[in-house]
């Protein structure tokens, strides 16, 4: 073999893997001894193994673990309950005395049954202020409002129908659910209509639903470009009340004003990204990333920019 002809990557890869017959292997080795370019290719092949080995393998996100937990619990039959793969903190217990936890009960005069926690209520979330879900398998307590998947539109449609039929009864409450949304991207100072909610806090934030999968890298960049293009979420979604309650919790923890909230993903896991001003003139933010189910931080809050 002279310097005129080189071996291709596949032959070199087979050599490295010991797949060539002895004669061919010797020929290739003799060539490699005198051919720098082919030596470089061999080094590239070794680098592939190193790069693959060095690529981090992340742990299973909590959301996925919970999903599997649920699926297996369903598989086990209703009698067994969850298998407890990833138990979230008991937020009901932790936040029991918070004002927004107590508000909904006073706002349920229109509930058909006298048990406001009944799981088969035909009127879904939007008029229920996010207290209850019929989907309680994630949390053992069975009372926490599990967030419906965002594409569970039939429930929303049903809510709209219910609103039309029963306007006289429930309209006030319905609008209180929808009133959590500020109708403008620059709604930082907009006066949010918050008619009948007894929450002490005004809902002065823009809620978007970009579905974007945020990475740590992106969260270091100015966030306006990520939040800006997403449509502002309208009222009536079953998520909105739950998100609002969670925003209130976070604001209560941070003592800062949440001004923009986006529903999306964080490293592939469903997440609510909340931004609060730390210093508005310097455009610095505190970024809280929480899971939509339990309002639990998915990573340490960080400082970002708008």
């Amino acid at each position: 073999m002279t310097g005129d002809t080189h071996y291709d990557l596949e032959i070199l890869a087979e050599l490295a893997e010991g797949l060539l017959d002895a004669g061919t292997a010797r020929q290739v080795r003799e060539h490699l001894a005198v051919c720098d370019p082919c030596g470089e290719l061999l080094a590239d092949l070794a680098a592939v193994r190193e790069v693959l080995a060095a690529t981090p393998t992340p742990a299973m996100p909590m959301g996925v673990a919970l999903r599997i937990d649920k699926a297996l619990a369903a598989e086990a039959g209703s009698g067994r309950g969850g298998v407890g793969l990833a138990e979230p903190p008991n937020w009901d217990e932790l936040m029991r005395d918070s004002p927004w936890e107590q508000a909904p009960a006073r706002h349920s005069p229109w509930e058909p049954g006298n048990d406001p926690l009944a799981g088969n209520d035909p009127l879904p979330e939007p008029v229920r202020l996010g207290v209850v879900s019929d989907d309680g398998t994630i949390v053992p307590a069975g009372r926490r409002a599990a967030r419906r998947r965002r594409w569970a539109m039939p429930a929303v449609a049903a809510a709209a129908a219910a609103a039309v039929v029963g306007t006289a009864v429930i309209s006030t409450n319905l609008f209180s659910g929808g009133g959590t949304i500020v109708a403008g991207q620059q709604g930082v100072t907009a006066d949010a209509p918050s008619p009948t909610r007894s929450d002490v806090r005004a809902k002065a934030y823009a809620l978007t639903d970009s579905g974007h999968n945020y990475s740590d890298q992106e969260l270091k960049q100015p966030l306006e470009s990520f939040f800006g293009p997403a449509p502002i979420v309208g009222g009536g979604s079953s998520d909105v009340a739950g998100v609002d309650k969670c925003v209130n919790r976070v604001a209560n923890r941070t003592k800062l004003k949440v001004f923009a909230v986006d529903q999306g993903q964080y490293n592939g896991q469903e997440a609510v990204i909340m931004t609060s001003w730390k210093n508005k003139s310097a455009k610095t933010l505190r970024i809280d990333i929480v899971d939509p189910f339990n309002c639990k931080n998915l990573r340490k809050p960080t400082v970002g920019s708008w």
Binding site: E10, A13, E14, L19, D44, A47
Partner: peptide
């Protein structure tokens, strides 16, 4: 042997794409 040969062919395809990370 099949695993080895699949790995070898796969690495050969990846080498030009990933070599800048070398």
């Amino acid at each position: 042997g099949t695993v080895k040969s699949r790995c070898a062919r796969g690495r050969a395809k990846l080498a030009p794409i990933l070599s800048h990370l070398r």
